[in-house]
Nucleic acid binder design. Structure first.
Ligand SMILES: [Mn+2]
Ligand SMILES: [Mn+2]
Ligand SMILES: [Zn+2]
Ligand SMILES: [Zn+2]
Lengths: 148, 148
DNA sequence: TCTTCTATTGAGAATGAGTCTCATTGTATT
DNA sequence: AATACAATGAGACTCATTCTCAATAGAAGA
């Protein structure tokens, strides 16, 4: 049994729920996707593995994975919520190119102490943290110049 | 003519569009709202000022105001996009209480040099920047303890 | 002033991501 | 096996947002 399966099972147990075959399939597919994904893409991928899966079941599993700290909702791409697995990965900043959609990730390291200080000042108990920066990646900057 | 009207008019002119009476009404209502708002709330407020306004027109105006840098989409509250006017206000960090919905705002000042350095390192041309931190406000932290 | 042309608008239909219902199935317990 | 209840699939449903289209406004010209 893989580490993330154990984590999910433990979380589900605290809610009186079980790690069923279907939930395990969804979980493992999530950890096989190494990009950000939306629920539709996840559903499509699972459909290639089994023919009996309902979109509703996939949607129902998402909040469970989220509460178990196995995935996070990271951004919103063309009207769909976009997720990624975070178990075993540190959370990170997303630099999103508004032109080509490329996403670059950097870590929070330098920001953390500053944010902790701010949190303390305003007496805020930090939970989820989401920093998305939109702009142009280096490729799209150069192609902008070409077009001039 | 107010400053933000001038800005909007100038922006619209670059697109071959005009600052119509309806657009001016929407713009001014936006600048009369001093909280974060969703389109439905904006529409409701405008309806108290005139009876002939279409939801579609309000929705159509939003991307114009956004591209003119007069408003920004800040967060998403119960399935609706939430906006705020930013002309004349610096962009800021949002600390969002997951329990009561209270939003505290702090500035980016200390973060800016760090982010600029990161942007330079990855050759990214920063545009819009969105930092939302979810957690518990001080009030909800104490009420959590009460309930134990 | 009267026409012409185009952008703008209102009303409501359409879209689509996400949620909900309910009949059926799986599984643990007695 | 019988009971009890969680879990699932199928598809209906919701509701924020977008789209369509006919009617209107308003600028520019005759
Ligand atoms: Mn990521
Ligand atoms: Mn704000
Ligand atoms: Zn790019
Ligand atoms: Zn609170």
């Amino acid at each position: 049994m893989q580490e993330h399966e154990k984590v999910f099972q433990d979380y589900l147990a605290t809610k009186g729920l079980k790690l069923t075959r279907t939930r395990a399939l969804i979980l493992n597919t999530v950890f096989d996707m190494h990009e950000h994904f939306d629920v539709e893409a996840l559903y499509d991928k699972i459909k290639t593995l089994t023919d009996s899966i309902s979109r509703a079941t996939v949607y129902r599993c998402i909040p469970l994975l989220k509460d178990a700290n196995l995935i996070q909702q990271s951004m919103r791409t063309s009207s769909r919520d976009s997720f990624e697995h975070i178990f075993g990965h540190p959370r990170h900043i997303h630099w999103i190119c508004s032109k080509c959609g490329t996403i670059v990730e950097t870590d929070y390291e330098e920001l953390t102490p500053i944010l902790n200080r701010s949190a303390k000042r305003i007496k805020f108990a930090m939970g989820e943290l989401k920093l998305n920066i939109y702009g142009l990646c280096w490729k799209c900057q150069s192609s902008e110049n070409e077009n001039q």
